[in-house]
Amino acid sequence: MQAFTQLNGIVAPLDRANVDTDAIIPKQFLKSIKRSGFGPNAFDEWRYLDHGEPGIDNSKRQINPDFVLNKPRYKGASILLTRENFGCGSSREHAPWALLDYGFRAIIAPSYADIFFNNCFKNGILPIILNADVVDGLFQAVEADEGYKLTVDLATQTVNTPDGQSYAFEVDAFRKHCLLNGLDDIGLTLQHVDDIKTFEIKHKAAQPWLFN
């Protein structure tokens, strides 16, 4: 996993609540057996006017000029600003894979769905929670100023605006550690092999039917 330390990037505003993972990456693209290549199909049904299928050349498709991510001013955005309950619905990790592949490394919203939130951390994406009023203010700032950038600093847990404002955010200490260092969870857990084995023996003695 790519480490996340500091990010200075263009902010793209997606002004909708309850954006679900079916919208982030539609089901037909879940047929892939790979982890990569989902970026061109992120938000596929909103982003293109024609129907997308895996394997077709997306560069030849009809772009929806009204969809916010298609506006030239948000080209190259690496921070997605959105509304509450982002990433609700299916557990598909293809959603963060698609966002990452598109170029997003951080998301700012008032709240997220649990599974999506968790999946982001496994893929080097930082989902930041700021309160709804702050998010509102950021939407206005992004709208007002073409090329608006924010700086996200994970070590200090702050989002910093060009005019010097700084918003603090919470992040779980373990997740922060993994993200800052780009650590693979499995490797960390396997440091506790003895604990797992000890637990397993005790668990099997108490409930042998779980091990049939």
Partner: peptide, 21 residues
């Protein structure tokens, strides 16, 4: 019982455990 992402699927396969709050 709960749903997990693919990274966690791999994690459970390899460790029989899930990192969970």
């Amino acid at each position: 019982a709960h749903g997990i992402g693919t990274s966690e699927v791999e994690h459970v396969m390899a460790t029989q455990c899930l990192v969970q709050k």
